[in-house]
Design a protein around this nucleic acid. Structure first.
Length: 488
RNA sequence: GCCCCCAUCGUCUAGUGGCCUAGGACGCCACCCUUUCAAGGUGGAAACGGGGAUUCGAUUUCCCCUGGGGGCACCA
């Protein structure tokens, strides 16, 4: 039997890293097994649809390279892949259950249900449907129908017995039926609930393994009951550990950056995110951190999925992203940087950026940025034309604090010495300034810092002489001159 | 309140009865390299929640407790 798995998001929000990790594990399992990865959209709640959510889902998956074999935009033999287009299947299934007396119509109003729950809460009882409509007779039903009450359909849960199954990561799990209630399978608007639609589709689409987040574990007995009542064979269940926020609670917008696309915006690379997410709840061995997509596919196994929840640690993601940034080819990094810088640089910097120029900057920043969005601050001075903006005190720094004259003299010497450098290249520049420091009785670093600020307006920059080389003679001398004026 | 799951450094994890004086990684600290910032190198601090039981021997098996998480909708 070939493996068929699915990722079944509902378009009710932007997918967060936990959702996508679930997609990733499904995808990895399918690719490892040579099976199929299905994308199914669970849009059965018409009231909660969020515009743009579907695009965000597709965007997120594509960004990580999680391609699906069947689903939206990819026709397959089991379509359609939007549940809202499969209502007939659910309706038929529900009717079959009613006919078999495995389900029944319930006419209780939401208000009454609310009351029941409130009452149960008061008595510290578990909130459950009190099964009032479970045994309605023909007359009762006719009466309700006559009143025009639109019913829901509830599953007739056995009052005793138990549901058990072997979860691939959890092991043997048992639920007593008496702790379950008669859950709704068709809402009054005629749409199925998750439970029904999910079971019907997983069966119809011949899904072999259900990999989903652990939050679904408690509803698995309901699904088992449905599979059984419908006469379907249940798939293998694989409940994945949750990904929690730093407060150990379920991920929500409350946790700041949680959406995958938000990380993309911050300048994380898809290959780093892929690697990081793949290691949240799964590991290859006791030492491997950097794993390529091919290796993930080759080695991924359900057996090595961990049971305990994981906290999403951005710090480690950021480190890993740095590893991937450094591994990029200069050409690729230049490409990414151009796109990014054109976005982030001040508006007066002319676009488009010159590719060859950026290519010269790349080696200076590659090992200094962990995220793409750090590039702009680190490189603005390469792009702005006029005088730099920085407070004069920055020139003085710690070394020349209160010694303005000394700083000015040093800078003057440097400024007058530099024009004589015939080749404006880093080694020649260093060859001019390093001896000068000694002549002036200054530590090389102190003189260099003075020049660095004059030329870049910043105290943290790529190596000074390489930077000056890229900036070019004219711009450097003009900035040196400008700095001198600020000191007088 | 009821049900279910989980439990190794702050975090991600290795570990499946003796190989553990518990390994790796991020982060943190120190030192080295160094013109700043990084990157890199070296070293360091840092964990088996508690109690029973099984066993010659438990991080590893079982039970209880505690702690954490999840679920209990006409949401998925």
């Amino acid at each position: 039997m070939t493996v068929r798995v699915r990722f079944a998001p509902s378009p009710t929000g932007i997918p967060h890293v936990g959702n996508i990790r679930t997609a990733l594990f499904n995808w990895l399992f399918a690719r490892h097994e040579g099976g199929s990865f299905v994308l199914r959209i669970e849009d059965t709640d018409q009231t909660r649809l969020v515009p743009g959510a579907l695009d965000a889902i597709i965007d997120s998956l594509r960004w990580l390279g999680l391609d699906w074999d069947e689903g939206p935009e990819v026709d397959g033999p089991y379509g359609p892949y939007h549940q809202s287009q499969r209502l007939e299947h659910y309706r038929r299934a529900a009717e079959g259950l009613i006919a078999k007396d495995a389900a029944y119509r319930c006419y209780c109003s939401p208000e009454r249900l609310e009351q029941v729950r409130a009452e149960q809460a008061r008595r510290k009882e578990p909130p459950r449907y009190d099964r009032r409509c479970r045994n309605l007779n023909e007359d009762d039903r006719a009466q309700e129908e006559a009143k025009g009450t639109v019913p829901v359909v509830r599953f007739k849960t056995p009052l005793s017995g138990r549901e058990e199954f072997d979860d691939i990561v959890r092991g043997h799990v048992v639920f007593e039926n008496e702790t379950l209630d008669d859950f709704i399978i068709v809402k009054s608007d005629g749409f199925p609930t998750y439970h029904l639609a999910n079971v019907v589709d997983d069966h119809l689409m011949e899904i072999t393994h259900v990999l989903r987040a652990e939050e679904w574990l408690p509803s698995t007995p309901r699904h088992l009951l449905l599979y059984d009542a419908l006469g379907y064979a249940a798939p293998q269940f694989v409940h994945l550990p949750m990904i929690l926020g730093s407060d150990r609670a379920k991920l929500s917008k409350r946790h700041g950056a949680v959406s995958l696309l938000e990380y993309r915006r911050q300048g994380y690379l898809p290959e780093a995110m892929f690697n990081f997410l793949g290691l949240l709840g799964w590991s290859l061995d006791d030492r491997t951190e950097i794993i390529s997509r091919e290796e993930f596919i080759r080695y991924f196994s359900l057996e090595r999925i961990v049971k305990n929840p994981a906290i999403f640690d951005v710090e480690k993601l950021t480190w890993m992203n740095g590893v991937y940034v450094r591994a990029l080819s200069p050409e690729r990094l230049a490409e990414l940087l151009i796109e990014r810088l054109e976005e982030d640089l001040p508006p007066d910097v002319p676009r488009p950026l010159d590719r060859d120029y950026v290519l010269r900057i790349v080696p200076l920043v590659q090992e200094r940025i962990k995220r793409l969005d750090e590039a702009a601050v680190l490189t603005v001075f390469f792009f702005v034309e006029g005088p730099l903006e920085y407070p004069p005190e920055l020139l003085l720094g710690k070394r020349f604090a209160g010694k303005r004259d000394e700083a000015r003299r040093a800078l003057e010497s440097a400024t007058s010495r530099l024009p004589a450098v015939d080749r404006w290249e880093h080694d020649a520049l260093e060859g001019a300034l390093r001896p000068l420091a000694e002549e002036l009785g200054l530590k090389a670093g102190d003189l260099f810092m003075l020049v660095r600020v004059a030329v870049t307006g910043q105290t943290a920059t790529p190596p000074l002489f390489e930077t000056m080389e890229v900036l070019g003679r004219e711009r450097c001398l003009a900035r040196l001159d400008d700095a001198l004026h600020r000191l007088t």
